[in-house]
Each structure stands twice: as structure tokens, then as C-alpha cells.
Design a protein around this nucleic acid. Sequence first.
DNA 1: AAGATCATATTTGTCAGACAAATGACAAGT
DNA 2: ACTTGTCATTTGTCTGACAAATATGATCTT
Lengths: 236, 236
Amino acid sequence: MALKAGGTRNLHARVIEEIGESIVSGVLRPGEPLPGESQLAEQMSVSRTVLREALKVLAAKGLIETRQKTGMRVRDPTFWNHLDADVLSWRCAAMPTEDFVEKLVEMREIIEPAAVMAAARRRSPEQLNAIGVALDAMEDAPDLDAWAAADLQFHDAVLVATNNELLSSLFSVIETALATYFVMSARTAKNFKYSLPHHRAVYEAIRRRRPNEAAVAMRTMIADSRANMRKGKRRG
Amino acid sequence: MALKAGGTRNLHARVIEEIGESIVSGVLRPGEPLPGESQLAEQMSVSRTVLREALKVLAAKGLIETRQKTGMRVRDPTFWNHLDADVLSWRCAAMPTEDFVEKLVEMREIIEPAAVMAAARRRSPEQLNAIGVALDAMEDAPDLDAWAAADLQFHDAVLVATNNELLSSLFSVIETALATYFVMSARTAKNFKYSLPHHRAVYEAIRRRRPNEAAVAMRTMIADSRANMRKGKRRG
DNA sequence: AAGATCATATTTGTCAGACAAATGACAAGT
DNA sequence: ACTTGTCATTTGTCTGACAAATATGATCTT
């Protein structure tokens, strides 16, 4: 486990990533004892100070466990902070199994309807307006890039309108991970606005404060985009 | 911000908690610049080494941001890892507003039905059996403590049966936070088994692989325990 | 021989001091 | 007024040392 050459970020950030990826990808097995701090620091050509800063962060993510005299051990995956953005991103990078993507998709399909329901219940007029603005931008989008930007804006506005930072935090983490796998689902350039009616339906339900209608509209949208995603996969 | 006297844990763990709580509770405002590392270390009577280990962890949780020359700043709450177990626990400790508890409850009401649906779809025979064992233990529980233990066992077994560590991780974090606020909802000692039929209904739905029935049963159970929870609040 | 007790070595935890690198602020020059 | 360059400040990194905890094995006791 030697540190990769390139990279201009902070040293400890690189160490965190290096070790974190090794653990999450399974190179370092759970229960396996890591070499001592001094030895590990030497292997990676960093000082023990920097190494320790990295180890504390990894311990905070639940990936490792340290005790005096015993040394460090990789913790069992049940203790990992699976919802941590880094852990998730390392899993995505590690050529994951198909079923991991399905788990992410399952999460999305739980969260998104719940999010629009919450937004329909609690959105303020200003928040509704922000969603409306995003929707207009989607409608007027001249090309795919503009549409993608407006789509992102729409989702963000809905997230804010939920007025529940736990929900939006979760949403954001899951979406980021999913974005690793799927290209924008409107790749077929000509009909990139195909999901506009669905977005409008969601907006209308939120405007009329109809949680159930919003959830139904969102589920319809998901079912629709599901098929499109199958075509547009990026890399195994 | 001086470090509290007592406590036998690691020094950096205490520093993490001290600063983390100050930030989450709002004593340190977002955007506010923290004193320099040297000065802060002196204030807390720890070495800069230890302080930095703590700062890196807090940065990983999204609470602070450090840049050379500029120093450290508290980040805007939108960047916090709201689903981090520590952040959540600090919020719970900080005499939170009522609406925070409602956000937690909302999360639970989203997750739990989804979890039992997933379990109904994908549980293995062994996982079903584990749920059944827990259910039997609940039924045979002679007193409140035994019942609480069996209840925990039941929930854990369902969690495992979802076969989605993202879901179970989320579940676990939210439940832990909620447990801070509510005493066991069966406080009225005599009828502490009142929710047994609900649990049995959930089990039956999972056994028969009926996701929708499982979700309905769970929602019924939640609605039922909602009322009980109102009575048993702990501390504002 | 078996078990309890203690010494020791190893590993993480903590500290102190130094220098490097980055960068905002300010002065000087055009 | 604008650019350029120096400087001071703050985080980033390294080094070496000692403290505290504890697994291991040796020693002592029964």
C-alpha cells in the first residue's frame, strides 16, 4: 500500500482515500490487523502525524478500530457508516457488484416519493416559486446541458421545500452516488424533454398541497426513467 | 471553550465532542472564524497534534472548513453530514426544538414501512426464522426488560432481513437518535405487550412475502405507538 | 501441574518544537 | 489606477521523545 504518485491535495486526504478505498474494496479484509502506525507511515512515505490524522477520520467513519498494544483492525462492515459520502464514493469506485446499484436505486425509490410528499405538505410560497422557476427553465431549455442544469435546480428546490435536512441530506448522498453510474437519463438527444410532463405533474401536486398525488407522480416518473437508465449505463 | 474536566476517553475524542457540540448547538455560528490552531490548542490545554486530529474529523463531518492563511470557519449547516451519528447525537443533546424531533419521526415513518417491504421481498428462510425467534421471545417475555430486549432483537432481525445495508444503516442511526427522546413506549408496565399483535402481523406478512401487507401492518403499528410516545416524553 | 501474579515489551496516545507551503495584505513601482 | 512583489500569518508536514495501556510470557504460589 504505497501512496499514489500524483495528486495535489492535502497529504492526509490522499492517505484517507488510499486506505479507505483499500478497506471498502475488500483489499483489506475485516478483522485483519493493519501494520503498526510507524511501519504503515513508512510504507506510505508520510509522517506518523499525517497518518494518524487520516486514521482518526477513518475510525470516525467506522472503518477501523484502534486499541493500544493490539493495533488497528479493519472493522466488520456492519459497523461502517454506509451513508457516509466518502464510503459510498469508494464503493462506487471499487467496481461494485450489480446488487449494490440496486440497493442505491431502492433507496432512491423510497426517498423521492417521500420527499415530494413532505414538500407538498410543508413548502412555503417562496419554495414553491423556486420549484416553478426551475420548471420553467426546464421547459425553455434549448439544449441538453441547459436541461440538465435546470433538472438539477428542480431537484434541489424540491429538496429545500421538504424542510427536513435529514431527508435532503440522505437524498443528496444517494443521488450523488447514483450519478456515478448513470449518464443523464436523457441521453437520446432529440427527446431530452420527455420527462417534462412528469415534472409538471409533481409540481402541480406540490402546488395544490396534495402529498399523495405528488408521490404517485414521482413514482410514475421513476418507473419511466428506470427503463431509460438501463440503456445509458456507464461502466459495469 | 475549555475542555471539560472529567472523562476518561481519549483526549481527541473529547476535543471532537467539545467543538462538535459547540458548533451543532449554535454556540459557534456558521461562517464564524475559529481561533487559530495554536491559540485554540492552548485554550483547551491540549497539544496542537491532538487538536488537529479532532479538526480533521470535524472537517470530515462537514462541520468546519480549513484553508491556509484564512484559518478555520464553521461551515453552513447545509454542508453538515446530518446523518452522521455524532452530529445527530450532538443535536439531540443540545436541547433541540420540537420540530427536530418531528423530522426524526418523519424519517422513521418513511423508513420502517420501506424496511419491512424490503424484508418481505428478499428475506431468506434463515432470516425469517431469526425474526420468528425474536417474536417468540417477545411473546414469552416475563417482564418489561425482557420484552425490550426481545423487541430490539426483532427490529435487528428485520434490519438484517432487508439485505440492504444502506437501509439498515439509516434505520439504525435514526432509531438511536429517537431513543434519546422517548422512553420505551410501553412504560405503563401492565400492558407492555400491547403491540405484540402488530409485530405478529408484520412477521406474518414477511413470512408470506407480502410487501404491501407488511407496510400496512407497520404503519398501523407506528400510528399506534405514536399516541403512546406522546405520554412518555423524557425531557423537553 | 494449574492458576494467579507480576514484569516487560510493544503499540497507540500525547506532547513540543521546527520548518515548508500557501496565501491574503500591503507596499512599491509603473 | 493597476500590476507586481515582498512579507507576515496560518495551516501543513516532519521529527523525536515520552506517557499510558495492555497482551504476552515469566515467575511465584498452591
